[in-house]
Computed example of a mutant assay.
Amino acid sequence: MSRAINPVDGTAVAYAAVGPADAPALLLAHGSALSSAIWRGFGYMAALRPRYRLLLPDLRGHGRSDKPTDSDCYAMDLVVGDLLAVLDDAGVERAHVMGYSFGARSVLSLAVAAEDRVRSLIVGGGSARPQAGAFDRLFFPGCVDVLERDGMEAFLDAWSAHRQWPVDAATRAAFRANDDRALAAYFRRSEQEPGIADEALAALRVPTLAFVGSEDLLRVPDTRALARTIPGARLAVLRGFDHATTIAASREVLSVVEPFLAAAPRA
């Protein structure tokens, strides 16, 4: 993997670049406690790499990227700086960008901060709302305290107990690969994020697709709000999936993502 350096704080962000060098660039940003490995594991890489140059970063605090344990290191402006550093390091002026969950907030913030670097925007299971209490709602009440005090296994067990069905083995393995202290610091800072103002969303002029699982009860209203607020945004609700299972349903996700990308500007 290559490493891009955020010039603001020196954080190193690991990323892979795969696919034809002369193809349009598509940056994929993963969700909380995961890594860029999901894009291979869930089949996105195989489907997309023939037509796109894929940029696959491990977001800070995840995968092979640096994992600071100071919560202030996870401010969203620094995360946006990481994505810009990846684009710069890869020599990409403009890219299609797609993110899920934390990745969705990251690419949405990137589009607001640097719209000239974004060809099109795909936001999956995302939210522009303030994030206070978001992880308690997404996982279970007191989840960050459990992670800090008792570690990842206790966190995963408690999460399974609060779900309709247990956390699958692949997701468990991905979560176990994290540094508990760094992940807790990321969670703490994320809960302080104020969100993105509707005025900033309404000013976007990039082609946008917002998708969400129909059983993702917290993110369905947030995703609908995004689609209403961003001019011309398309909305796709994927039936039968919750927040954890939507991104793994690559066939269903790609059924809406690939036509959108094909119709988006290529220059």
Rank of each mutant, 00 (worst) to 15 (best):
D66S: 09
R188S: 08
K67T: 14
D82T: 09
A75W: 08
A182F: 05
S109W: 05
L78G: 10
L147N: 12
E193R: 13
P194L: 07
L108Y: 09
A182D: 01
V118P: 00
L54K: 07
R176L: 08
R53V: 03
S190I: 07
D157H: 11
L183D: 09
F187I: 08
A90H: 04
L83V: 11
V118L: 01
G81K: 12
F102R: 15
G124Y: 03
D168K: 13
G151N: 04
V86I: 06
D116K: 04
M76P: 00
D179C: 09
K67D: 03
D180M: 12
S127Q: 00
R172C: 08
G91K: 08
F187H: 12
A113N: 05
A95C: 04
D150T: 01
A182P: 02
S106K: 07
R105H: 11
R176P: 02
F175S: 10
V79W: 11
C73L: 08
G99P: 00
R60Q: 06
R60N: 09
D88G: 12
S101E: 00
G81Y: 09
L110D: 07
R117W: 03
L55W: 03
R119T: 15
R53Q: 11
D77H: 15
S109F: 10
Q164C: 08
H162E: 10
D150L: 00
V112L: 01
R53P: 00
D58E: 01
K67C: 06
Y52E: 00
V112Y: 04
E93N: 14
A104D: 03
A161H: 06
A95I: 04
R188E: 05
R176D: 08
D136K: 08
G61Q: 05
A75M: 02
A154D: 05
D58P: 00
P130Q: 07
V92C: 05
L87I: 10
L56I: 07
S101N: 04
M98N: 14
A182V: 03
V112E: 02
G151W: 10
A114F: 05
I122R: 12
H96R: 01
E93P: 01
L110E: 08
R163K: 10
A114G: 11
M152S: 09
G99M: 00
M98A: 15
A185I: 04
S190L: 08
A111C: 01
F155S: 04
V144A: 11
E193D: 15
V86F: 07
G142S: 09
N178M: 02
A158K: 14
L56Q: 09
D145N: 08
G151C: 02
D70M: 02
L56Y: 07
S190V: 08
M152W: 07
A95G: 05
H62M: 06
V107M: 04
R129I: 06
L54Y: 14
D82Y: 12
A158V: 08
A114Q: 02
L110K: 12
N178R: 02
E153L: 02
